[in-house]
Every structure is written in C-alpha cells, then in structure tokens.
C-alpha cells in the first residue's frame, strides 16, 4: 500500500520535473556557472589546485546547489496543490517519495558537477569508485535533511534565507563525513581506511532519514 503510494508519488515528481524542464535546467546552469566562477577566480591552469582545496570547494558547491535544488520541494509548490496532496496521500508516502526523488536528483547533480568540475579544475581523484559511492551516500543525507528542513521553512515567512540558516548547521555532520571520505578517495587510500567513516556516514544517513520520516507527519498536519 505504502510502496504503491510511494511509487505513484515518485512518478508524479518525475513527470512534474519533465514538464517543468526549466527548473532542472536552471539548477544545472546554476551548478555550471558556480563551477566556472570558481575556476575563473582561482585563475589557475587545470591540475594546479591543491587536492585539499579541490575537495572542499567541490563539496561547498554541491552543498549550495543542493540547498537551491531542494528548496523548491515545498517552497515552490502552491498552497492549493499541497492541500490537494493532503487529501490524496499519506504524510509518510509524501516524505519517502520526496527523499528518494531528491536523492536521485542530487546524485545526478553530483555526477554532472563532478564531470564539469574535473573538466575545468582537473581531476585528482585516485579512487574513483569510493568517490562515486561517497556522492551517493552524501546525497542521501543531504536530501533527507533538506527535504525535512524545507518543509519546516515553508511554514515560515522569508523562507529562502531560513532554509539556509536552518539547514546548513544540521547538515554539518553529513558534510564533514563526506569531505573526510572524499579526501581519502582523492589520496587513493585503501578501502579499509575509509571503512569506519563510511559506516558512520551510513549511520548518520539512516538516522536523519528515519527522523525526517518520523517528524514530517507533524508538519504535514498543520
């Protein structure tokens, strides 16, 4: 029952995204121009950036793109449409489908960003498999956190600023772990070195997603 609901809602998200291509295109353009600005402001030839800087810059760009991408999950849907969902679907179904959808979107954005970023700023990543796994794990945590926070922020005035203010500090555990694993991937360390960090990130992801699913019904009701 819940599974069917989630898959239907997920399908709705995809259809909406395809019908409103400008939103997706906008966010990809945002990502591309941010990366290009970073490239120009460092004013370096490719491959001259320190791996440490490369890593931090990449995740900061992804983080801010994610805030902008997830912002529309509740902020840009009109009150009438939210009311309509309320009569049709359960709160659990909506939050689960949104988290899955935004995880996929963030993975897509992460990969696109990684591609474009390595094109202009060089690609010092040595363990590519770990880096890609890290993008997926990071996306789950960021998507779950930001989906819940954007539903919180949607209830308040001046919500775009509020989303960043509320979201960024609670995202720090996820971001710190992803940056740590990503640094290991950059240095080409063996998988066993990152094992405990991966498990911690996974645990944080599960915790954040569970909390989001548990807490969302209270927001949905109001």
């Amino acid at each position: 029952m819940l599974l069917k609901e989630v898959s239907l809602l997920l399908k709705k998200e995809f259809v909406l995204e395809i019908r409103q291509k400008y939103a997706l295109n906008g966010i990809i353009l945002y990502l591309a121009s941010t990366i290009f600005i970073c490239y120009l402001s460092f004013n370096l030839m490719p491959n001259q950036l320190q791996p440490l800087t490369w890593n931090a810059l990449f995740w900061i760009i992804i983080l801010f793109t994610a805030v902008n991408a997830v912002a529309k999950s509740f902020l840009q849907e009109s009150g009438g449409r939210l009311m309509y969902y309320y009569t049709l679907a359960s709160a659990r179904g909506i939050i689960i489908s949104k988290i899955i959808y935004y995880t996929l979107l963030l993975v897509l954005l992460g990969l696109t960003g990684y591609l474009f970023y390595s094109l202009v700023l060089g690609n010092p990543v040595q363990n590519k498999g770990l880096f890609l796994l890290n993008i997926v794990l990071g996306s789950v945590g960021i998507a779950a956190t930001l989906t819940l926070i954007s539903s919180v922020a949607a209830k308040a005035q001046s919500n775009q600023t509020l989303l960043a203010v509320l979201g960024l500090p609670v995202l720090i555990p996820v971001i710190l772990m992803t940056i740590k694993i990503s640094k290991n991937a950059l240095d080409g360390l063996a998988w066993s070195v990152s094992q405990s960090a991966i498990i911690t990130l996974l645990a944080v992801d599960v915790m954040v997603a569970t909390l989001a699913i548990l807490l969302f019904p209270y927001i949905w009701r109001s």
């Binding site: 819940l148 926070i149 919180v152 209830k155 308040a156 509320l166 500090p169 609670v170 909390l211 989001a212 807490l215 209270y218 927001i219 009701r221 109001s222």
Partner: peptide
C-alpha cells in the same frame, strides 16, 4: 509550537 518542536528534536 509544532514546527519549533520538530526542528528542536531534529537539531
């Protein structure tokens, strides 16, 4: 109350 409580628990 409700929104604040949700954020507080999450935080």
């Amino acid at each position: 109350g409700r929104i604040g409580a949700v954020y507080n628990v999450f935080a």
